[in-house]
Each structure stands twice: as C-alpha cells, then as structure tokens.
Design a protein around this nucleic acid. Structure first.
Lengths: 198, 198
DNA sequence: ACAGTATCATGAACCTCGTTCACTAACGGG
DNA sequence: CCCGTTAGTGAACGAGGTTCATGATACTGT
C-alpha cells in the first residue's frame, strides 16, 4: 500500500489547519498554542512539526484560506453590484469592511503573522492581492479613462490602502470603537469624493 | 534625606525608557528583552518590575515619546507649509510618511503593542490623536465650509485613516517595497482628488 | 545615635511555550 | 519471519516574562 503515510499526513495537515482556523477565529492568533493543537488533534506535539516547518507555516495555511474567502466575498459583492463603477467601488469596499468585522481575528491574523524579513510574500498572497487590485482597477478605468496604466495602478493601490486604513482604524478598539455605519459612511464619502473629480 | 528612593526610581525609569527606546528603534519591538534591558541598565531583572507593571507599560512609555515626536514633526511641517489648505494636508501627510519611514520600528511599535482588550487607550494617546485630528480638521473647514462639524469629523478621521493605510501598506515589505516617491504621489493624488470636489 | 520597623532591590526560581531529538513502534521487502 | 528503514512520540531543552523569599537599605521615634 503505497502512499499511506502521505495520506495520513495530509489528513493530519487538514485537521490541524481546521483546528487552528477555528482557534484563531474564536480567540485570535495570540491564543494559538502548539500543545492545544496537538491535544485537540489527538496527535503528538512533535507531529505538528512533521507536517509544518513551524507554527508560522500553519498560520500561513490558515491565512491563505482566509484571504481566499475574503476575495470571494468581495467578488460576490461585485457581482451583485450596480453597473455604476463608483458604486462598484463602494460596494466592494463595504464588503471588505463587512468581512473584516465579521472575521475580525482571522482578518487580523493576515497582517499580524510575522514574516521573516528576508523572504518575500507567499505566492497565494500575491495572487489574491492581484485579484483584489483587478477588481478595483477595472471600475477605475471606466471612471478615469484618461489615466495611464501607471497612474491607474497608483490610484488602485492608493484606494485599496485607504479603505484598508479606514477599516483598520475603525475596527481598532483604541479609537473608541467607531460604529459600523460610520465606517461605511467614511468609505463612501471618500470614494465618492475622489471619484467625483473626473 | 527624603525622597531618595523616588529619585533613584525616577532615574531608573528614565534610563529604562531610553534603553528600550533605542532598542526598539534599532531592532524593533520584537527584539526587546527584559534581561537585555536589566543588563544594559545595570540593574536587577526584578528592578524593572519595581518601576513598570510589565514590559508593555515600558513600551507604552516609549510609545508616548514616539507619538509626541510624531505630532511635533507634523506640526513643524504645518508651520512651514503654504497657506493653501489642500497643500497643508499634503505636506502634513508627507511629514507623517517621512516620520514613519525614518522611525520605522518605533512607528510600528505604536500599533504592534497589544493592549488588553478591556481597558481603553491611555490618555496621552487620545490627546496626541486629538492634536493630529485638529491639524487635519482646520484646513478641511476652509476647504469644505458647507460641511457640518459631524461631517467634517468623519472626513477628518477618514483622511487620517487613508493616509495611515497608504503609509502602512507602502512601507510593508510584503507589497514588494513601494518606492518612497510613489507613496508620496499616492498621498498627494488622493488628497488632491478628494479636495477638488468642493 | 541607635534600635526597630517598614520599605526596597535582588536574582534565582517558576511558568509558559516553541522546537528538537533520542527512542520506540510500525512497516515492508527479501 | 527477520531486519533495515521510516514515522511518530513526548520528554527534555532553551528562551523569555514574571514572581517572591531573602537580605539590604532607608526612615522614625526616642
């Protein structure tokens, strides 16, 4: 019976990702413990390291799922959005906000995991990021047909970063908890203002 | 000799903040070690805990300094800025960017320190934040005199968050290192676009 | 000045965690 | 059925934040 080991390992891998995913979703990245994972998965502590190089690798696997779900939700919002490109931007941004609010811990884990400073971002990250950027860039091409590709790329990145910043600080408790509606208003206000200036 | 203890403690406190500040500036928050601090300050390990409740308190003391310096640099930029309110916003935002880039680790520590989820932000944080918000709100009042205070507050917060997001993602290595000039361009592009739409 | 008491500083010890590795168990080819 | 190879195990290791019993130090009243 060839591949039995690989099968068992793949199953453990899936299992560990599921457990870590739930743990992060419930309690946040900082509450993830190797010993908890092993206990809940019914495996030895060392078994985790037969399947993942370290806990960061496991977290990255969870993050890949999270990011993919995020992209899917934004895409779904876009599919249901009106034709008007400005409204498309607003709807997608609010979908981003909705996802972040509904999956706060998992969403935070996307950015809180510490990457080694030398190695670059994983492939799935760049791919999903590109997907999101395309969703933004397409309506922008309609709104600002006179812009060069380079200018549009700049604006795309800038708008994404802006919305990200608004959601980030809005969901941060330190800012005394901005109400969800106000975050959506801020997003809409800024996007509509920017895109008014054709 | 009254107050000798208090004096010694105050000196140790200053000393520890200085050492931690330098350590964070050089190597980042994650490289801060209680044992290193004690060794460099020439004090016992436990002495740190006579002066600070825990290391987070010490980091918060460093952050207070960082945030104050940040506010001062933005204020200075504003003082040297032209009268045009839009340009004032651009200049301040680019000063924010410049500070973050020049003090990357210290700036990151402002946001990376984990606060207990129940207790709210320290007083100095709210005060400095309010100062920054005032700097933004004042030019906005000139640009958009028709806005209510509430609308302007929303726009203020939104603009700050946007600029923060642009700087944050721009300085993040994962985005493949956006050149400094492009970050400034993004900031200027977005601010000018928004404020065109009077 | 001195004894007595309260307060402070000290660093070894404690605890939590991620990670490793010597050992044991399981597997499979001959 | 035996033996070499591979996989799984969990005790042990090392790092690091925090605590606390103990000895040193400073204050107070006489």
């Amino acid at each position: 019976m060839a591949g039995k080991v690989a099968e068992r390992r793949a199953a453990l891998r899936e299992n560990l990702i599921n457990i870590a995913e739930q743990r992060i979703a419930n309690d946040g990245l900082s509450e993830l413990r190797a010993r908890d994972l092993a206990k809940e998965a019914g495996c030895a502590l060392g078994a985790i390291y037969n399947v993942f190089g370290d806990l960061t690798d496991l977290v990255l696997a969870v993050n890949a799922r999270t990011f993919h779900k995020l992209g899917a939700e934004v895409a779904e919002a876009l599919a249901d959005a009106p034709q008007d490109p400005v409204e498309q931007l607003v709807v997608m941004s609010q979908a981003y906000h909705r996802f972040a609010a509904a999956n706060l811990h998992a969403w935070r884990a996307l950015f809180d995991v510490e990457r080694a400073p030398d190695e670059d971002a994983p492939e799935w990250y760049l791919q999903e990021m590109g997907r999101l950027f395309t969703y933004i860039s397409d309506p922008l091409a309609v709104i600002f047909p006179q812009y060069s590709d380079q200018e549009r790329a700049l604006l795309t990145r800038g708008l994404f970063s802006s919305v990200h910043g608004i959601v980030l600080l809005g969901l941060d408790g330190a800012s005394a908890g901005v109400p969800s509606d106000e975050i959506d208003s801020m997003i809409a206000l800024i996007l509509r203002q920017i895109t008014l200036a054709k």
